[in-house]
């Protein structure tokens, strides 16, 4: 399983954090000359998965806007199609806390938008009741990552961003989110899950 990128959007629809991981394998990006890719994102590696491996280059900002537009529309569509149904289904997902991997029962709102998959990648989505949206792009083989996103929220975002007394309550432009502890822990956590 490979994780390509990760985004957080706040309740004002702004992208307050994004991270791209370099891809180790490069099956689908043949034909694209890595040197033609502009060195955006502060010296990130050139081969960055589907988010970056498009012929038409978009800035990281446009990427985030596109992703937000997609999840926003999809979420609303899922809700409209499903109707005002507030029943819940039980499902099982594996969690990786500090301890060994285990399967945990979790409750998912029937109408919530969880993920979508294309031929190239899979997008996972989790929204907190406070309208913070977590998005992760992975390869297509990855199983349900909703619980992983929830863990990122509980163990990393709340611990290192919300509880940091120096970071503001709202994060316009991402102020206070990308602090060292959060970045480090996120990187380790994602590598640990994979």
């Amino acid at each position: 399983m490979t994780c390509y990128s990760f985004y957080i959007f706040d309740r004002h629809t702004e992208c307050i954090y994004s991270k791209l991981w370099a891809r180790q394998d490069r099956p689908l990006s043949a034909g694209i000359d890595p040197s033609s890719i502009p060195a955006s994102n502060g010296g990130a590696q050139s081969d960055l998965g589907p988010a970056r491996a498009r012929p038409a280059r978009l800035s990281a900002q446009d990427d985030a806007k596109l992703i937000f537009g997609t999840i926003f529309s999809l979420r609303n569509m899922v809700r409209k199609l499903g109707g005002p149904d507030d029943r819940y289904i039980h499902t099982y997902a594996h969690t990786t806390g500090n301890g060994p991997r285990k399967w945990e029962k979790m409750l998912i709102q029937r109408n919530s938008f969880i993920s979508y998959r294309t031929g190239q990648y899979k997008l996972h989505y989790y929204e907190t009741p406070t309208s913070i949206k977590f998005v992760m792009l992975t390869d297509t083989q990855t199983l349900n990552m909703r619980n992983v996103l929830h863990q990122i929220y509980v163990n990393l975002y709340v611990e290192f961003v919300v509880k940091n007394p120096l970071s503001p309550v709202e994060h316009p432009g991402g102020v206070g989110v990308a602090n060292e502890l959060f970045e480090l822990a996120l990187d380790q956590f994602v590598k640990g899950v994979l």
């Binding site: 819940y88 409750l107 907190t128 009741p129 929220y153 163990n155 709340v158």
Partner: peptide
């Protein structure tokens, strides 16, 4: 946020 994290509220 701390409340949601501690109580594991997903919805």
């Amino acid at each position: 946020e701390d409340y949601l994290a501690k109580s594991n509220t997903m919805r």
